[in-house]
Design a protein around this nucleic acid. Structure first.
Lengths: 203, 203
DNA sequence: AAATATTTGTTCTTTTTTTCACAAAAAGAA
DNA sequence: TTCTTTTTGTGAAAAAAAGAACAAATATTT
């Protein structure tokens, strides 16, 4: 971890953003902590605390200005600057991510993919695909700092080490293992199997 | 939410399971809270607390029996009984989930898919695909209680309502909205865009 | 068999997160 | 203008989660 704010707070902000865009589409220019919280699944107090934590101000009695909120949130997540990513593992999930609209909509650009399987190198995807040993070269070329790991369990740490040595500082990891990384590198974990499986506990 | 345990505890158990299987592959039959914690990214105390919370016992000085732990965890997540799921939305993510090995490995069975686009109905995927209005029929037929929503933002709540009326009690939601569901229905949220985007905060 | 070393199970502390409560600000009404 | 109402901003309280500490159990050694 690198900073002072919890992962949950950050995710709440992105949730707020989602709702704010909705509100904006409906023609609103101002929003109250209560309405935003209700839409985003948080309490009004939490909305205000979160904003206050980041120095985001509203007007007492007048609520928050939606444009200003959106700009503030975009700043937090550097949405104005180019947000480049590389993708390692062009399997099921990898291919889905290449075409995932959610990234394109939000100024996130996957500059290249990597896979061990040579059949993936032919121009068949929306991005160029190279063998993993070219990671350092491409990372340097584009100045990418962020990578997605979507490889099987066995190669997870190997790929991670390769990414680290290439200078990657942030990783979204779909492989089901705990990655060993130095303190200045941040990793987010997504385990689709586990997310589904927790549901069966309640049945 | 339906019960007493937090989502994080449940996810930790699935993480423990992952590591235990690894240990087992390496020929171990016993494990200490310290080793398991180290591998799973948790403290030894937390491992013991988690197990204790679910009445899972070890032997003082002898550690925990791996087989017993795995059985206990499988019980928690009903891995012995058939775990059936339906999938709504056969887009990028939906198609990736159909072929996702992580589900197959763990006795999770997607019985059917649903999509509005008729071009998806032809036998092209590993599962049959129907129009959404056949959800109630299929849910009844298989006795499914769990669904995955992988549709665009606009149709998220509509599909959710359809699932609820069909008797679905647990939902894994990939659409980026807060679903309105009654108290006895549990929803897990996966927002791939947000998981990636939080990384840019640290850069 | 006794002594020793090690690890669990659980209570007690600390930290983190969320909620509550209310003063201060600001919009609108009188 | 002054009064009233509404909503923010934040400090204090409560709840939840994580960590430390240590007694009780149990392997192992002497």
């Amino acid at each position: 971890m690198a900073q002072n704010y919890s992962h949950n707070v950050l995710k709440r902000f992105l949730h707020y953003r989602q709702c704010l865009i909705q509100f904006q589409r409906h023609g609103f220019r101002k929003v109250f902590s209560y309405s935003l919280g209700k839409e985003a699944g948080a309490s009004a107090e939490q909305v205000r605390k979160d904003f206050s934590l980041f120095g985001i101000k509203g007007s007492r009695r007048g609520g928050y200005d939606i444009d200003y909120l959106l700009n503030s949130i975009n700043d937090i997540f550097k949405q104005n600057s180019e947000r480049l990513v590389i993708l390692v593992g062009i399997g099921n999930i990898g291919q889905a991510l290449i075409n995932y609209e959610g990234f394109k909509e939000n100024n996130i650009h996957i500059v290249a993919g990597f896979d061990l399987d040579p059949s993936k190198y032919i121009k068949r995807f929306a991005i160029p695909v190279y063998p993993p040993d070219r990671i350092p070269e491409i990372v340097r070329q584009y100045g990418v700092k962020t990578a997605i790991i979507a490889v099987p369990e066995i190669s997870g740490q190997v790929i991670c080490d390769l990414l680290l040595s290439a200078g990657i500082k942030a990783i979204l990891n779909f492989s089901p293992i705990l990655l060993k990384v130095p303190d200045d590198v941040i990793v987010n974990y997504v385990n689709l199997r586990n997310e589904l499986e927790t549901l069966f506990f309640y049945l």
